[in-house]
């Protein structure tokens, strides 16, 4: 994913922009893909990120950024179609398959993605990762959720609070 700076981004048909991660890795991607980020969109529209400049993203590390861009590149064509009203069922199924596979990742990566999607304002990715965490929580008891999310064992106070909640919100445990 990490592409060395080429400097001749305007050569091909599609305009390219360069994004620079917090650990100074440069990523060259099509402007259309990077524009899935509302945060980057205006800068790119104004001609930023081309040539040797690059857009620094000091709050996204290279591992996370490469994952984010993987998502953007895959989703850019559909987004360019305005939400792809004329996309075929096959295209949609393919995107869905990609999304499912895409979030099949370590929790640490997942949370970095949540932050990055939030900071870069990539709507589709935000809801995709939030849904993934929701799926990890769904259908579990509070204790199971705590274990899934890696919470330490509850203190006696927390345990008492949990029991109180189960009594108070009985309907949530039926």
């Amino acid at each position: 994913m990490a592409a060395p700076e080429s400097g001749d981004g305007n050569n091909g048909a599609a305009r390219m922009v360069t994004l620079i991660s917090s650990d100074n890795t440069r990523f060259e991607v099509e402007a259309a893909a990077a524009s899935l980020s509302q945060t980057l969109q205006l800068t790119i529209l104004d001609g930023g990120g081309g040539g040797g400049d690059g857009i620094p993203l000091p709050n996204v590390d290279s591992a996370t950024l490469s994952k984010v861009l993987e998502y953007c590149i895959k989703h850019a064509p559909a987004a360019a179609n305005g939400g792809a009203p004329n996309a075929t069922a096959v295209d949609r199924a393919e995107l869905e398959r990609f999304d499912n596979e895409f979030v099949n990742i370590d929790q640490s990566v997942l949370y970095s993605l949540i932050m990055a999607a939030h900071n870069l304002e990539i709507e589709g990715l935000q809801s995709l990762v939030a849904k993934k965490v929701a799926d990890m929580i769904k259908g579990k008891s509070p204790m199971e959720i705590r274990r899934t999310l890696g919470f330490p064992d509850p203190t006696p106070e927390e345990q008492a609070e949990m029991n109180a909640h189960m009594l108070e919100y009985g309907w949530a445990y039926e």
Binding site: Q126, S127, A130, K131, V133, A134, I137, K138, G139, K140, S141, P142, I145, R146, L149, F151, P154, E158, E161, M162, H165, M166, Y169, W171, A172, Y173, E174
Partner: peptide
């Protein structure tokens, strides 16, 4: 945002997780 993606029962249960 995560909790808002949960059905109502699951959402309410998250209140028991921690303070």
């Amino acid at each position: 945002n995560i909790v808002s993606h949960l059905p109502v029962r699951d959402g309410a249960r998250t209140a028991a997780l921690a303070t």
